[in-house]
Computed example of a mutant assay.
Amino acid sequence: MSEKKAITFSSAIQEVSWGSWYDHVKGYWVEKEKKNILYLFYEDMKDNPRREVERIMRYLDLSLSDEVISKIVELTSFKSMKENPMANYSCIPAPVFDQSISPFMRKGEVGDWKNHFTPEQSKMFDEDYEKQMKDVNIPFRNLI
């Protein structure tokens, strides 16, 4: 009988994502100023989508009317995108992307991880995150 190997969050992230998620995120964060990268966070977009659209506009040095900004906010809402075949991947054939196994767009909720992590898993992740990301100050939020 084979022994079960203990899997840490770090090793799970490493195995699932074909490389370290931590290294990937830290690498882009460190390069953001040199390479002119705009970081967007899902929680910020959910919290205040108009503010984030305006951030993108400033980043791209664009000026749009309030009406156009409002339309962008409306069309990029989770609800609107979940109903749009070009955004929700429902136009992709099942042999390529089988939505019955896992839909591309799930709930669009911030903090849904709480429904999947036990308190112990949450604590383990928090500890691992703190250890792995101690050398960068990325303003992640996991709740609004």
Rank of each mutant, 00 (worst) to 15 (best):
H24W: 09
H24Y: 15
K26I: 03
K26L: 07
Y28G: 01
W29H: 05
W29N: 01
E31N: 04
K34E: 15
K34S: 13
K34I: 00
K35I: 00
N36P: 01
I37Q: 06
L38F: 08
L38K: 03
L38S: 09
Y39M: 13
Y39D: 04
Y42F: 10
Y42W: 00
E43I: 03
E43Q: 07
E43C: 02
D44H: 13
K46E: 09
R51V: 06
R55I: 05
R55Q: 11
M57T: 05
Y59S: 09
L60S: 10
L62K: 10
S63T: 14
S63H: 11
S65D: 14
S65T: 15
D66K: 14
E67F: 00
V68T: 15
I69M: 09
K71T: 14
V73A: 10
E74Q: 15
T76R: 14
T76S: 15
K79Q: 15
S80R: 11
K82C: 09
K82P: 06
E83T: 00
N84K: 04
M86Y: 05
A87P: 00
Y89I: 08
C91H: 08
C91K: 07
I92N: 09
I92W: 11
I92D: 12
I92L: 14
P93Q: 04
A94Q: 12
P95Q: 08
P95C: 04
P95H: 14
V96L: 12
V96F: 10
F97K: 12
Q99A: 12
S100T: 15
S100W: 02
S100C: 03
S102H: 08
P103V: 04
P103R: 00
F104C: 07
R106I: 08
R106Q: 12
R106T: 11
K107I: 01
G108Q: 09
E109T: 09
V110G: 05
V110D: 04
G111S: 03
D112L: 02
D112Y: 05
F117N: 09
F117E: 10
P119R: 08
P119Y: 10
P119H: 10
E120M: 14
